[in-house]
Design a binder for these strands. Structure first.
Lengths: 409, 409
DNA sequence: TAAATTTCTTAATAAACTTTACAAAGTTAA
DNA sequence: TTAACTTTGTAAAGTTTATTAAGAAATTTA
């Protein structure tokens, strides 16, 4: 029956603060959230918005000002009486950073606490820089450059989120496997970053980050249940359920690249093989289908037709090329099968197509047309609005959430 | 900027009670929860468990006793000092009921606030009783009978949950469509029940209820992410994510019966047709496959072999019948394809096979064997432990949660 | 210039929790 | 048998937080 005196079951509960002091913090948190949503506004506004009494709001705001989380902008415009003191969330109180570790390059972004982008930075990997350790120093370097460009200091960077193209255990901060990267396995990236940078860090799967980005300020704004499908070199999905990422029991939710493709023989799933769906409609798969058609019809290889990238084939389809249109049709049909399968399971309201190949307008158009032929299991199909920036914005979003929880803990 | 004075943005927030009075309620709720988990126990125990001070616990318990939610059992055993006053959650303070509206019969269950089953009741539908209105009166009748048998009164029944074999909008309380029932469409079942019984009600899809049941006191106890597959006349799934049911944007998450089956031609989804997966491995589909094999091998129709039900065919397979084993293999293979598809999307830790056909041990055995051939996307496969009772227990579970929230609102 | 309006603060009051002190009812051991 | 010790529970006093009520400050309106 005896429990550790520092851990209280009540306070651990979902909604069960137990002590008066908790009220103060909860109110401060709530007021800060309201201020962010109605930035800038006056104390009187906060009184109306929160339902709390004026003195309570006053003292909470004083507390937030003492933490430099809130600034007093001075008098605003009177509406027939004493002019209000306008308050603003101090977005420069700190900064957050996002990282996208890609197959060939590293991209980074720095944003203030409002999520406003301050600077970006990118670099190509050299052969030597591909080890986890080297990547960490490279990130350190990039962060320093961005801080300088943004006229701030590393000390003011409060959190960083890094995305990797592989299966990541967000809790332990370990990249479990990233074959499409440099075959990272069980890399404790979070702790490495935290040691290198001295900043709390978070790691995530890159497709999941893109989904977060689209949810935050992209095509899925305000949509709690959706699936983001990333179609590029690889094929994967980021799944949002009830406004939050769904990771699954082994951090591998959304690994749809291994799914079966209708018409192709069933196959057991092996760890070190490329998945069937990925082979079919990953970038290489699409290009292979294009070459197959070219050869079948013995078309002359004008202007290097044989070496076109997937998106270039799609562009040809827009220009009216019949054979390229067939490739689009082929891709869209397989994609629709995949979407229908997920829709029957999850019933998402929205499906977003993203990734280098997936966000091509022609593919979206044809996919939507095919999907509409069903009488149900047809979620709204949208194209990614953040494009290749989605991951970075998602990283910022996660860092902002983590910071928010941390600032008034 | 002006907001309605009765709605406070802060109090609507996830974790943001704002007033001292909220503390009282939150603490009372928390203490009641702790008492339920350590039933019976003393105030001193609650002090240790909650981390609250003794006077606070005393006054909260007094409050709970005044509501008759807690009983004082008198002195317990001393552990070297003044003997503790033992407290017990008063499970007879009220009761909750569950209903399963099936294709041919109505089943009901009555339980106390601890979830202990008091009585059950069931009846076959007659032709006339199939209208929503008639079903409601039948439920009323059943409830009265159960109250009598349980020596309680209808007034003490605090909540009821009803499950229907169709797509249900839990928020609005409307059965959107239940073709396998009596072609109910847009039936406002919840409000009908509430008017008929004078009790707050909840409605749900029956497969979802079964999933809740297995999660509460069945094969998925303690598992937050799992999929319950119901294989019977129909084929459907109940999906648990992060400890809660997942409904999807149109209340049709888990309607996997319409899924494609590998090797069969792709098909568009139509509302009034049976789904491809359901045609393949629903009860009728399995029986059809059995007949097909019988005919192909021109086997003499001994002992009415042609009229065997799916489960009877599976029984034959256990007895060593080669052809029946083929049917099991056929079913299991399609089931595995379906499970793998869901596993790649959701990565559930556990998949539970249930329903009249799905819970057959032989099917589970073969399915598990096939599933194990994959190197990943192989969730733990379990068989339903509540069997046909799963729905009813799930209904009780939902009613208990609803009641808990209601008792100390 | 006075009245009205809006914003914000100060002072008094109420609610809820905690600490401290102590009473009640047992066990243990000289 | 009795005194010391333990454990449980309550009462009183004090602390923290929020509220209401009153009023001060700064502006617009008449």
């Amino acid at each position: 029956m005896r429990t550790d005196s520092t851990s209280h079951a009540l306070t651990d509960a979902a909604i069960a603060p137990s002590r008066p002091a908790h009220l103060r913090r909860a109110n401060a948190r709530g007021l800060l959230r309201l201020l962010k949503e109605h930035n800038p506004c006056s104390k009187a506004d906060l009184v109306r918005l929160s339902g709390l009494s004026a003195p309570t709001v006053s003292s909470a705001v004083a507390y937030l000002e003492s933490l430099s989380l809130v600034e007093n902008l001075g008098d605003g415009e009177s509406s027939g009486g004493r002019p209000p003191e306008m308050l603003r969330f101090n977005a420069s109180h700190g900064y957050v950073a996002g990282v996208d570790i890609g197959g060939t390059r590293l991209r980074m972004i720095l944003a203030d606490l409002n999520g406003r982008v301050v600077t970006q930075w990118a670099t190509q990997f050299t052969e030597k820089q591909r080890s986890p350790k080297a990547v960490c120093s490279l990130i350190h370097e990039g962060l320093k450059v961005m801080c300088q460009e943004g006229s701030t200091s590393l000390r003011k960077v409060l959190h960083i989120t890094a995305g990797a193209p592989g299966i990541t255990n967000v809790n332990s901060g370990v990249v479990l496997s990233a074959p499409n990267l440099y075959d990272w396995n069980d890399v404790p990236l979070r702790s490495m970053l935290e040691r290198e940078l001295g900043i709390p860090a978070l790691i995530e799967n890159d497709t999941n980050l893109a989904a977060v980005g689209e949810h935050w300020r992209g095509s899925a704004e305000g949509v709690g249940d959706f699936v983001f499908i990333a179609l590029g070199t690889g094929v994967g999905a980021g799944i949002f359920i009830h406004g939050k990422l769904h990771h699954g029991a082994n951090w591998s939710a959304g690994e749809i690249g291994y799914g079966n493709v209708a018409g192709k023989p069933r196959q057991n799933l092996e760890v070190h093989a490329t998945g069937q769906l990925e082979r079919a409609i990953g970038g290489l798969g699409i290009e292979a289908e294009w070459k197959r058609l070219l050869e079948r019809e013995r078309r002359p290889n004008l202007a290097g037709l044989e070496r076109l990238r997937a998106t270039e084939v799609f562009d040809l389809a827009v220009d009216g090329d019949r054979m390229a249109a067939q490739v689009v049709q082929y891709t869209a049909q397989i994609l629709v099968d995949c979407i229908v399968g997920m829709a029957l399971t999850l019933d998402p309201g929205v499906v977003i197509l993203g990734g280098g190949v997936g966000s091509h307008p022609e593919l979206c158009r044809v996919t939507a047309r095919l999907l509409a032929q069903n009488e149900f299991a047809k979620p709204q199909l949208r194209s990614s609005s953040l494009g290749p920036q989605a991951q970075l914005h998602g990283a910022i979003s996660l860092s902002l959430s983590a910071t928010e929880a941390q600032l008034l803990a």
